[in-house]
Design a protein around this nucleic acid. Sequence first.
DNA 1: TTAGATGCAAATGTTTTGCAGGGCT
DNA 2: AGCCCTGCAAAACATTTGCATCTAA
Lengths: 143, 143
Amino acid sequence: MQKEIYGDILNKENLRITKSRQMVLDILKDSPPKSIDEIFMIAKERDAKVSISTIYRTCETLSQKGLLYKSNFVEDGKARYEYPGKQHKHHAVCMNCHNIISIDDCPFGEFDEVMKSKYHFDVKSHSIEIYGYCSDCKLKQPQ
Amino acid sequence: MQKEIYGDILNKENLRITKSRQMVLDILKDSPPKSIDEIFMIAKERDAKVSISTIYRTCETLSQKGLLYKSNFVEDGKARYEYPGKQHKHHAVCMNCHNIISIDDCPFGEFDEVMKSKYHFDVKSHSIEIYGYCSDCKLKQPQ
DNA sequence: TTAGATGCAAATGTTTTGCAGGGCT
DNA sequence: AGCCCTGCAAAACATTTGCATCTAA
C-alpha cells in the first residue's frame, strides 16, 4: 500500500491519515460488503498490526463520514460495510451459498413520488435486497 | 384472549397451541414490526408470566414456520418480527422519530425478469426499506 | 403418558467503551 | 506539543442453549 493512498478523501472529511483507515478502505474498495471479522481477517493476512476494536471504530467513523456504507441485510446478526461505488447499488444474496452479487439496476424508479403523494413521506434513501439462488446454486435449491 | 385463538394456524404447522405463541401472534397482529424486548414489554403489561427466552424461542419458531416475518432493517442491532398481512408489504423508516410506516405499494414490478436475464439469479423474495422523514418530522430534518 | 414447551441461569457472539500509550499534524 | 487514534481488556447488549420442570395432546 502506498503512502498517501486515500489521503485526499480522508483529509476532506477532517480525518487523520492512519494506516488502519487506509487499509480498511483498501480492503473494501472493489469488494462486496464485508463484515468486521472478515475485514479483520484480511488485515491479519496482510500482516497488519491492528486490533479488532480499531476495525470497529474505523468502520463506524468512515461510515458516519459517508466514506463507507453500512448495512444489515444478511440475516446473521453481523453488520457489513461497503465502499460506495460511483453509482447507486443493490444486492442479491444467494440463499444457498450466501454470496452477495452487486446489482447496478434499480427498480425504485419514480417511487419517491408515490411516497410523497400517497404517504406524505420525504424519501432520502432506500435499500433493496433480493434473495434467491445464484446461477451456481439454482440446481441445488430445495423442492 | 380467547381460548383457541390462532389454534388453526398453529395446528396447520404442527405446533402446539400454547399461551406464549397465542400471545405473541396476538401482539403482532395488526402491528408494525416489533423487537423482542418490545414484545416482551407488552406481554408483561398484559400480565403474562413469560420469560424473554420464550419470546426469543417463540418468535424464532413462528418465523421458521412462516407465521411471522423476521427482519433486520432498523439499524439498531435488534431483529424485528411482524405478522405477515394478507399482502406483500414494505416499510418506510423515519430517520428522525424511527417510526415505521407500512407501505402497500411495491416498486419491484417485473424486476424478477431483469434478475433472471441479466444476472442469471433466481429471485425468491425481496425486501425494500425506505429511509427519510415522515410528515410529522419533515420540518425538523437537518439542513 | 410423553414429546414438546418453558423458566432460569449460564454461555455465546457481536459491538462498545475506559483508559493508558502512541502517532499524525 | 497537542489532540486524535489505537490496543487491550472489560463491559454492555442481543441472542442462544443446557437442563430440570411443566404441559398440551
